[in-house]
Design a protein around this nucleic acid. Structure first.
Length: 583
RNA sequence: GGGCCCGUAGCUCAUUUGGAUAGAGCAACUGACUUCUAAUCAGUUGGCGGGAGGUUCGAAUCCUCUCGGGCCCGCCA
């Protein structure tokens, strides 16, 4: 039985206990309360809050229901808790007790703990796969970097967040599609083309000024050199058809940059299912159709020669221009069209990751979804804060090539993919991230990536050692051990490891439901610490060694090793971080 | 002028969405290996949760104000 089912079962037991307390007239609602079969209206098992207490001395689960209901029933919390607890008949607990100020504390029986551990071995690579999504198609858009320059570390954080969150969705039974929306249609591509053209001409000896609002990074010069290699001096002189040259250069550069960006993502282990081109929205007629759709639904109007979208009708701060007075359409229109395609392609849940500088988009994107007649809650926009690089305690300067930020590619080369992935996700996305380069490179337990991987490798090391001494060490063999043997895992340290391992599915659920992938990192570090601590205890006290002359105890501990191994391996797989068997 | 995010130990961060005595890791100090990898572990020190009010059985968490830091507010994308 997984932790999930225990929790929901306990909630039901508590609910039934309240029911019985009412039906046996031990408690009665006050007259001022709206009653539903003697219980407050809307009260059900789902309203019951049960969670592990901070202090282990208060048991494995705690319930605050008595304090919540104290007013409705006019009974003091502790007294009410006693009455409810009397009626709780839950077989998986060895003890249920009431403590001030009104908590009901539950203590798991030893049998249920070992039973859960057996289940972990049985589930093996499926351990932690809770069904949340029922297979629903989810579109996850992230890292939609404009292809006008190299990808920065802050965008890298977004790419990793999106990728790992997608991975978590997949692990919890969602069909996640990773998507990159490529803004290849607008002014910024023209600006890039123009920047490259000026560099091209400068490189060929022309004395012209570089535009103030152009792209200043060294990569623009690299692109210009490539274009010289391709076209020679053909476009050296300014001509009336310069606009065509700008388009030519812009397209070349944009395709090149996109390829580079996607390449860096792949280097990080991120593979997009779809790169959606903004330009294709125009060439496929989707923008036009969307505009007609909006007009037909009375959501547009004309003013000052421009076409406006009635965004305020959907809670946006102001109406937005869709078609400018010069006849060109804006990104606001293509954004609505783009979201239309997501629904048209069968997605019923959309998640979009954006950097902190785009928080102003939240309202307008929700307005866009509203205009399409789709429930606003189907689109979740997740904003993440930026990254500051620290090296030797100092803020790392901007990249010369990128001109205004540190390049992701340089970071990957410096600290490695595993560290980049882990560090980008280990803090909650709401908070600014300080990326300590020295720590990420460190081969010591101060480095959390190393710490987790080392635990994995150590488990394999122990299994190899045991095998060499003639033990049967496969998961199947260990899972077949009788309960009497497994019950030898009875030290507080061993029981704590088994209990904490059992938390994994619940953590996965919290990560997904709260859009908080970082919780998995905190869990993993906490869990691994329990194991490392136990392991080291065996170095000091021979009674705590895993492989000893005591055959039964050794077998029990190999069982424990597999519980740890499965848990840490599954965590690392969700994070898509490598799982070395030897370090 | 309006809006979003953050503020917790010297540093980097948790605190299970309002619960019980606010916890880890660095750093500092004290200890533990003829090893199932010491690439590790145990212990000690360290807090007016930026500040002030409010909401209730109960607040780091919710509300108001305020101070500090980051980021936005275009017929640019």
């Amino acid at each position: 039985m997984s932790e999930q089912t225990i929790l929901s079962e306990v909630k039901r037991f508590i609910y039934e206990a309240v029911q019985q307390a009412v039906s046996t007239r031990r408690i009665a609602l006050r007259d001022s309360e709206i009653s539903e079969n003697g219980m407050p209206a809307g009260f059900g098992p789902a309203q019951i809050n049960i969670e592990p207490p901070r202090d282990k001395a208060f048991g494995d689960f705690a319930c605050n229901i008595a304090m919540k209901l104290t007013k409705a029933y006019g009974v003091a919390p502790v007294e009410l808790a006693r009455i409810i607890a009397e009626f709780i008949k839950a077989p998986m607990f060895s003890k249920i007790e009431v403590k001030a100020p009104g908590f009901i504390n539950f203590y798991l029986s030893a049998d249920s703990i070992y039973q859960t551990a057996y289940n972990i071995l049985k589930l093996n690579e499926n351990f932690g796969r809770v069904n949340i999504g029922n297979g629903i198609k989810v579109n996850v858009e992230f890292g939609s970097v404009n292809p006008t320059g190299p990808i920065s570390v802050s965008h890298g954080r977004q790419v990793v967040l999106g990728d790992i969150f997608s991975s978590m969705l997949e692990f919890t039974n969602h069909a996640a599609a990773r998507e990159y929306y490529c803004n290849d249609a607008g002014n910024q591509i023209r600006n890039l083309g123009k920047s490259v053209l000026v560099r091209y001409r400068q490189a060929l000896g022309a004395k012209i000024d570089f535009p103030e609002d152009g792209y200043h990074g060294d990569y623009v010069m690299e692109l210009a050199k490539e274009l010289i290699a391709i076209h020679g001096e053909k476009y050296r002189e300014e001509t009336p058809s310069d606009e065509e040259v700008i388009t030519l250069f812009g397209d070349y550069s944009q395709i090149k940059m996109l390829k580079e960006i996607v390449g860096v993502c792949e280097k990080m282990g991120v593979k997009y299912d779809m790169i959606y081109s903004e330009r294709s929205l125009y060439t496929d007629g989707i923008v036009e159709k969307t505009q007609e759709f909006l007009k037909a639904n009375g959501l547009t109007y004309e003013k000052d020669g421009a076409t406006w979208f009635l965004a305020t009708k959907f809670d946006d701060e102001k109406d937005r221009v869709l078609v400018k007075s010069d006849g060109k359409s804006t990104y606001a229109l293509s954004d609505i069209a783009y979201h239309k395609t997501k629904y048209d392609r069968g997605f019923r849940q959309l998640i979009t990751f954006l950097g902190a500088d785009h928080h102003g988009y939240i309202k307008r994107l929700h307005a866009a979804v509203g205009a399409l007649g789709v429930p606003a809650e189907t689109l979740t926009i997740l904003i993440h804060q930026f990254v500051t690089m620290l090296k030797d305690g100092q803020v790392v300067r901007m990249s010369k090539r990128a001109a205004n930020y540190v390049e992701l590619n340089e970071l990957i080369d410096d600290v490695g993919v595993d560290a980049v992935r882990y560090f980008f996700i280990m803090r909650k996305m709401d908070a600014h991230l300080d990326f300590d380069v020295n720590l990420a490179k460190s081969q010591s337990t101060d480095n959390p990536v190393f710490y987790l991987q080392y635990c994995h490798a150590r488990c394999h090391g122990v299994l190899n050692e045991a095998k060499g001494r003639g033990f049967e060490t496969s998961v199947e063999q260990v899972a077949a051990l009788p309960m009497d043997i497994v019950k030898l895992l009875n030290s507080p340290e061993e029981v704590a490891i088994l209990k904490r391992a059992a938390d994994f599915p619940k953590i996965m659920e919290e990560c997904v439901r709260n859009f908080s992938p970082h919780l998995l990192c905190h869990y993993a570090e906490d869990f691994v610490k329990l194991f490392q601590s136990f392991y080291t205890k065996g170095k000091i006290d021979k009674n705590f060694r895993i492989v000893t002359d005591d055959k039964n105890l050794s077998n029990a501990r190999l069982f424990l090793i597999h519980v740890v191994l499965i848990t840490i391996r599954n965590v690392l797989k969700v994070l898509k971080i490598s799982t070395p068997e030897r370090m």
